[in-house]
Computed example of a mutant assay.
Amino acid sequence: MRKFLGALIVALGLVAAPPAHAGTTVNERWVDARTLDLTWHSANVGEDVSARVLLPSGWTRNTRRTWPVVYAFQGGRDDYTSWTRETDIEKLAARYDVMVVMPSGGENGSYVDWWNDGKGGIPRWETFHTVELPKLMARYHAGTRRATLGVSSGGQGAVAYAARHPGMYEYAASFSGSTHLTMDGMQLFLTTVNLLGSGPDAFRIFGLPGRDDANWRAHDPYVQAAHLRGTGLYISSGTTGMNGPYTPPGGVWRLTQLSEILIGQMNRSFVDRLHTLKIPVTSHIYGDGWHAWPEWTHELHTAWPLIMRALGASR
């Protein structure tokens, strides 16, 4: 019924399409009455990008009010539909007066303007997420009270963005994100992961370990942790990658789950750093658990009320 109503609204032309952002043509597709998919060409990324938007009750094209926004970032080798495909974020959002925006994050999930041997240029994922996307979402009545969350590399992006853009987000939550990029051995680990997904392009993302360490440090949440003061934080990850309480019945363990061991080391180090700096953080560094959605869905449910409180989003 919701899909039918959404399609009927568009077909009848009861609401006009918003003006394009900075001359960009934005294509809309209603998934249902409160879920809108947007696709447009991003000059920052150099390709077509998308965002799935969960609209709050009471939203209309012509309203003058704005809503607080949660920007939810995907993990690597996934896409902007992952949050609604893998979790019940739609139900969580529907309980509050809040908008949720789930944008493209790229195949490798780097969440950075690529280094490109120091030359810069596309893709500029950080600029896309922190400048282009909020400006576009303002046309859909997204307000300036923002929170961000993400899984895996999206969790890294959520916390790194909050540190690199102080005051932009009221809250940042990371579920199994890489939060200490320059910890011993982690540059090799992360570059290897990107090599498997991007081939030689992996060295264009943060740069070569050693030679381009300054750029790595500039995007390392651990190194930039002092800039997180005043931002609410939720940090979680496993430490073993082994079957845990949320492993689905019959789930087949894979060697890639061992990545959670290294991610757990990074998050323990990052949380310790926050404690040293006396920056408040809610953390859940658990033992057994996969680098997978069942664990992240549980963490989402725990973090969501904290995020809503930080945004001042009413039920």
Rank of each mutant, 00 (worst) to 15 (best):
E132Q: 13
S50N: 10
L195S: 02
Y71M: 15
D213H: 01
S82C: 08
S152P: 02
S176I: 10
P249E: 13
I307C: 02
S42W: 02
R145S: 12
A11W: 13
T302M: 07
G58F: 04
V15T: 15
P123G: 11
M137R: 00
D88H: 06
R315S: 11
F175P: 02
G241W: 07
G157I: 09
L12F: 10
G232K: 07
Y71R: 00
A20M: 14
G46Q: 04
D184F: 11
L92R: 01
G118D: 06
G121D: 10
I122M: 11
R85G: 00
T282M: 09
H41G: 09
F203T: 03
R315W: 00
P123V: 00
R65M: 06
T240I: 11
V69D: 02
E47S: 14
K91M: 07
W40V: 05
A214R: 08
G232C: 11
H301S: 04
S259M: 14
N116L: 11
V281P: 02
L195A: 06
R268V: 04
L149W: 12
P166N: 11
R64W: 01
R315Y: 05
F203I: 03
S104A: 13
G289M: 10
S174D: 06
T148P: 04
L274V: 06
W253L: 15
P200A: 05
L54C: 06
F203R: 06
V49D: 08
K135D: 11
A16P: 08
L306Y: 00
G155A: 07
A94I: 01
H284L: 13
P294Y: 05
G23R: 09
T60C: 07
G210R: 10
V151H: 10
T240D: 15
D48L: 15
D48E: 14
T282P: 01
F270R: 10
W40S: 08
I279E: 12
N116I: 05
M242C: 08
P248M: 13
D78I: 04
A225D: 06
G75Q: 03
Y171L: 15
M242D: 13
A147W: 12
G121L: 09
H21C: 12
H21F: 12
G109T: 01
L14S: 07
Y140A: 05
T60Y: 08
L133E: 01
H180A: 15
G312H: 09
R268N: 12
T84M: 04
G177Q: 07
R315C: 00
R229W: 00
V151A: 13
T81P: 02
L12P: 05
Y286V: 02
L306T: 02
P249L: 13
A303V: 03
R124V: 11
L8I: 09
L149V: 15
P221C: 03
D272K: 14
A138N: 01
M1I: 13
Q74S: 12
M99Y: 01
D213W: 08
H291T: 00
R139Q: 07
E170N: 14
A303M: 09
A72N: 02
K91T: 06
D88Q: 13
E126A: 09
A51V: 05
D79V: 01
I205A: 03
L181R: 07
W216R: 09
W216M: 06
I263K: 07
S237E: 09
T81Q: 07
F203H: 04
G143F: 06
P56S: 05
S152K: 03
D78H: 12
E90T: 13
H284F: 08
L258Y: 11
V151E: 06
D113R: 00
E107V: 05
T81H: 09
G75M: 00
